[in-house]
Design a protein around this nucleic acid. Structure first.
Lengths: 341, 341
DNA sequence: CGAAATCGAGAAAACGTTTTCTGGAAAGGT
DNA sequence: ACCTTTCCAGAAAACGTTTTCTCGATTTCG
């Protein structure tokens, strides 16, 4: 390793030398270890200040066996949901002096496992949000990631806490809300097929169907983005439905935009619901009725679980379910005229 | 350090022992070093596989003097602009096998310097976006962060590349666009006072004033969030202006929402412009006229600059300026009636 | 006053790698 | 056939800390 410009980096050795003490003493002083002569401590501190010494994190990590860093794997940093999660984790972890290493798998499931492994090797623990990874692969990966908390995936493994959102219940609440407003012809704009969240919504809707046999509910493949919602506008209109359950807020916003372009009034002609309650949902025109997911709380909670795991005890890992909360806003309204059938 | 459950972690030593070779050979094999006997290589690989060995990143970092990690300091992870930047940096860095450590300063400038320093100590380099930090503090901090690229801050230091957006020009373009549409009474919804970006916009508008003495331009303090824009609606209406230059897209969207609630038609009664062209800007009703900032490109470019610095050569650090691009959309239109004056 | 207990600072081992150094064997040249 | 060069595997140093261990000095107690 070519030493650039003589000895550039100032280490603990330099401080020790300058203060005329041993390495050990410097280390003790730097770590606030008592039982060290005040005079020595002062000399060390002075030397450290003069040399502008800052302990090397890597050396420290090696000696201590911890990095004070956790990894978080998300499918897509462009998605507000994962951004919120990341933010929640990051802020909470920062409170405890931990930093966060991010890994964006770009929605490709093969990357998810690689990134998770790599992140784990660099960090003390991992928060894994991998909705696409298949069940078997996940189970196989679990042991090697060990201090780990799962988001929106469940596992039999008793070691790993998991935080899941009850998408099934949320979508039922939204559907029920529409029915309450008199809608009897609904359409669901589905998300990515392989997505665990989409599966959960579909199951919820299945349950809804048996509870409300009088409601006509069709499903249209869409996606999880603005564009997906935007291009779905025409298909939605073709169904003649008066209420739309979009996969998430992004799709709903895209749809809102598409409907607006076609002169369709929301909620006058059609009611639209989203999912997640991203910050923007409150500021669309009209404001979006949606199922609020406390995504920041989930991130925060994820950190707290992980912190438990990193600490000593193994206090039963929690398997927490978050209930979405229905937010009634302007994008849903009473059905104008009963559907002719 | 208490070894948990006998020897848990499998290290290079275990592999060497199992393969019946020395540490050095294992290391050579793992790093694809040629000039190692094929037989030995095979044995090592087999042993590594059997033991499920993965090299310890910290040990590796210490020996190599590099972490393959960069830090990025942003003021607020909730802001779409910084989210985009982060995403750009992260994706680009990932392409080259680097990971990103995030530090969210929560908009407090004192944190910015601490976090930057800490990030630098853990990583090989830093991307710093610290709009609030004062000039002096920044200059003082620069040397200690050295492989570093600045975003939206300039510096005399020739060592550090910086990427800045020409907010001054962008806001002038937007203003000119409104003038072109016949507006003569404009209002600027200002951002946070201390923000460098806000200063740049104000300077641009000053220039605009001298170029267009016929236009009446007032400034209203607002902020950088939805809420800021939302609550500004009444103040904006009070000015009697027909064109509004919002600090950014968030403020514009909040304003749009506030105006809608009051039954004010956009762009019929008032034209509104944003800034940044965040992904949502395309899907508001009406779609937002704004100045597009290629924020993902900036993130990507930031990584490329940093990669240069991390590599050997010192090929003059670029000081790049990004020009916003005017996006004409539905939120601006011809002024309905000439302002009486 | 002497021996045991206490204390604190320095020497050295440890963390898990990579890489230089070294020495023995094989290969090549005269 | 002998000497020199080449090659490659293993030993050891290095990276920058923390922490255990050791040992001399000071204190305390009998």
């Amino acid at each position: 390793m070519a030493r650039k410009t003589a000895n550039r980096r100032v280490g603990i050795t330099d401080v020790a030398q300058r203060a005329g003490v041993s390495l050990a003493s410097v280390s003790r002083v730097m770590n606030g270890n008592f039982s060290v002569d005040p005079d020595i401590a002062a000399r060390v501190r002075a030397a450290a200040a003069e040399l502008n010494y800052h302990p090397n994190a890597v050396g420290r990590s090696l000696a201590l066996g911890k990095t004070d860093t956790i990894g978080i794997v998300v499918p897509d940093l462009a998605n507000p949901t994962f951004q919120g999660m990341l933010r929640g984790v990051s802020r909470a972890a920062a409170q405890d002096g931990y930093r966060v290493l991010i890994a964006d798998s770009s929605e490709v499931s093969s990357e998810e496992s690689i990134l998770a492994g790599e992140a784990r090797r660099r960090c003390d623990g991992v928060v894994l949000c991998a909705p696409r990874m298949n069940e078997a692969e996940l189970e196989a990966l679990l042991p090697s990631l060990q201090p780990l908390v799962l988001i929106n995936r469940s596992t039999a493994d008793t070691q790993t806490p998991s935080l899941v959102v009850d998408y099934g219940q949320g979508i039922q609440d939204l559907a029920a809300h529409l029915v309450e407003l008199g809608h009897t012809r609904l359409v669901f704009l589905a998300g990515p097929e392989r997505s665990a969240g989409n599966q959960a919504r579909l199951q919820g809707l299945e349950k809804f169907r048996v509870d409300h046999p009088e409601v006509e509910l069709t499903t249209l493949p869409a996606g999880s983005s603005f564009e997906a919602g935007h291009v779905s506008a025409v298909a939605v209109l073709a169904t003649g439905a008066t209420g739309v359950l979009a996969f998430n807020d992004l799709v709903a916003m895209g749809l809102l935009s598409g409907l607006h372009e076609r002169g369709v009034d929301v909620p006058g002609d059609i009611s639209v619901t989203g999912f997640d309650d991203i910050p923007f949902a409150n500021y669309t025109t009209p404001p979006l009725t949606t199922a609020a997911v406390a995504i920041n709380d989930i991130g925060e909670q994820a950190w707290h679980e992980l912190r438990q795991l990193l600490g000593d005890g193994d206090p039963e890992p929690a398997h927490t379910t978050f209930q979405p909360e229905l937010k009634r806003r302007g994008s849903t309204g009473r059905v104008k005229k009963p559907t002719l059938s």
